[in-house]
Each structure stands twice: as structure tokens, then as C-alpha cells.
Design a protein around this nucleic acid. Structure first.
Length: 283
DNA sequence: GTGTTTGTTATCAA
DNA sequence: CTTGATAACAAACA
């Protein structure tokens, strides 16, 4: 699941690869990927454009195409962005012209390099947006948790403003904090020694501090490791990120807790999501 | 055939 | 207004 650290990893890699490259052709293999546009319109609009910068808003990657236009990319659950310095050879399966089984879009650059958008479950999307629409995307999200805008004061006020929400749903809410998903919410709660099902108002002041710090710490560590490849996520070179060994609860149901080495990691359904925690370390 | 996986949005209900 | 539940999207996997 590409969350903030995974998209940030891609942003950093692609920021070193894409700027300056000119789009020669765009192929769309799954039209809904570019909805509400159409493959023809979408491709025509992008052809000849040069990528000027690579940014990120929450879990959305933003490829700048000059001052007026941006290509916004959301990987949703199974999206991948693969950069190939030279055109990859055509491989088995799927569409005849389709180099990889779940490739939904291909950007060919004039120097023969390529950007592939793979997405097994077809939830991801590509959208060409203008400046106003980019602003709208940004204002639909809360502060970036690793930016100075995400102050302790803001975080404390969040908990006060939504006293009856449980931590899980609150931290997952993109309007309140940008970029956290199922993995890093569970990991943050474990590191803070707080159960994700707790009501916001039930946190002691010291717990608010611990949670605030845990969010930042785990995100920084995950970015440093190149993200979590629990399922489909890979980096732009196709290699997995390295954070799985550092996960403390996500995907570890039944395992012995790596912190207390005593209790087994439990898994419940909370806010409709698989939620992992240690009964002994978290309260 | 069933349940599970999850990011996001829409819709409904209390 | 707050909050949570559910479905929808879609496909693979156990």
C-alpha cells in the first residue's frame, strides 16, 4: 500500500530521473485509469510536454509540466511506477503491446526511456490538472506530517476537536493529516504504546506527545528504508523497499511482539481495516 | 463459492 | 455537526 513514505521514495527517485525529459507518446491500456478524460484526449494533451519537476501531496505524486499543468498520479492500493532508462523488451501476457501484465499506461520519452504505470487492481488514476485543481488537491488534505506546518499544537487541537473519534480513523483521515495509511497508523500507535481503538479525548498529555513523535519517527525511518513492500509496492527500479523488517505490528499477527518479546500481535477490524497491536505494549 | 486485502468517496443512519 | 458503518471500485489469493 503506497502511503506517504512509499510515494515520497518514488518522488525522490523520479525527481532524479524525469525532469528535463520530453514525452513522445502515451499509451493507455485501461481507459478508466485516465477518467474522466479519455485515452485519446489524455495522450494528445501530454504529447510533446516536458517534465519540469516532481512533487508529492499526501499519497499523490505530482509531475509538473511547466507552470500551468501537472500530471497527478494516485497509486491507490496496487499502483507502481517503473522507470526504464531504455525501453524494456516486450514480455509475456496481457495486451500484445503490453510489456508487463498489469501495465495500465506507458509514457515514452524522446530519449527512449519510459515510465510505466502498473496497477493490478485498477484503482489508481492519472489526471492532468491545472493550477486551480492542484490547489484543490492540496487543500483537500491536512498538513504534511513531516513539514513544519504539522505542529504539536495542531495535533493536540485535532484530538480536542474530534474527542469521540478513535485514533485509527482520525489518523487515517486525509483531511486532518496527509499521507498516513493503514500500515503507518498501526506502526505509530505501537511505537507510542497506545491502542488504536482509543478515543482521542482519552489520551493523557504525555500520550499525545508520544504519538506525535511516533508518527514523525516512523515516517522518517520508512522513507530512509525506501518504503514498505508488504504487497505490491516497489520502487521505481522495480526493487522492493526495505522497511518490512522494521515493521513492529503490521502484517505480524500471531508473531511474538518484537518489543516486549512476550505477547502475540493481535489483529482486529477497526474502521473497516485490519488493525494490528500488542495488548501488552499498548494500552 | 467465501472472506480478506485497502485508498478514497459517496451515502446512509443515529 | 459528529461519528461510524457500508458499499462501491477491482482483482488476487487462501
Amino acid at each position: 500500500m503506497p502511503e506517504l513514505p512509499e510515494v515520497e521514495t518514488l518522488r525522490r527517485e523520479l525527481a532524479g530521473a524525469l525532469p528535463g525529459r520530453k514525452i513522445e507518446a502515451v499509451k493507455i491500456f485501461w481507459p478508466k485509469t485516465v477518467a474522466p478524460s479519455t485515452p485519446n484526449v489524455f495522450s494528445r494533451q501530454l504529447r510533446g510536454q516536458k517534465i519540469t519537476r516532481v512533487q508529492r501531496c499526501a499519497k499523490i505524486l505530482l509531475l509538473g509540466l511547466g507552470p500551468k499543468q501537472t500530471l497527478a498520479i494516485h497509486l491507490k492500493m496496487t499502483g507502481q511506477l517503473i522507470f526504464k532508462p531504455k525501453k524494456g523488451r516486450v514480455v509475456i501476457g496481457g495486451h500484445p503491446a503490453n510489456p508487463e501484465r498489469h501495465t495500465r499506461a506507458i509514457f515514452n520519452f524522446t530519449d527512449d526511456s519510459q515510465l510505466l504505470f502498473n496497477d493490478l487492481r485498477k484503482f489508481g488514476w492519472l489526471r492532468l490538472v491545472n493550477r486551480d485543481e492542484t490547489k484543490a488537491i492540496e487543500s483537500a488534505h491536512g498538513p504534511e506530517p513531516l513539514s513544519p506546518v504539522f505542529t504539536f499544537k495542531y495535533f493536540r487541537q485535532l484530538l480536542t476537536r474530534y474527542p469521540n473519534r478513535n485514533l485509527k480513523t482520525l489518523l487515517l483521515d486525509q483531511k486532518l493529516i496527509a499521507g498516513l495509511g493503514n500500515i503507518y497508523v498501526d506502526e505509530s500507535a505501537h511505537r507510542a504504546h497506545i491502542l488504536p481503538q482509543r478515543r482521542a479525548a482519552s489520551l493523557q498529555p504525555s500520550e499525545v506527545t508520544k504519538l506525535y513523535r511516533a508518527i514523525k519517527t516512523v515516517l522518517r525511518a520508512a522513507i530512509k528504508a525506501g518504503g514498505t513492500s508488504a504487497r505490491n509496492y516497489v520502487k521505481s527500479d522495480g526493487q522492493p523497499g526495505g522497511f518490512v523488517p522494521q515493521l513492529r505490528v503490521y502484517g505480524r499477527v500471531g508473531e511474538l511482539c518484537r518489543t516486549c518479546r512476550h505477547a502475540k500481535i493481535l489483529k482486529i477490524k477497526l474502521a473497516g481495516r485490519g488493525t494490528h497491536y500488542c495488548q501488552r505494549c499498548q494500552s
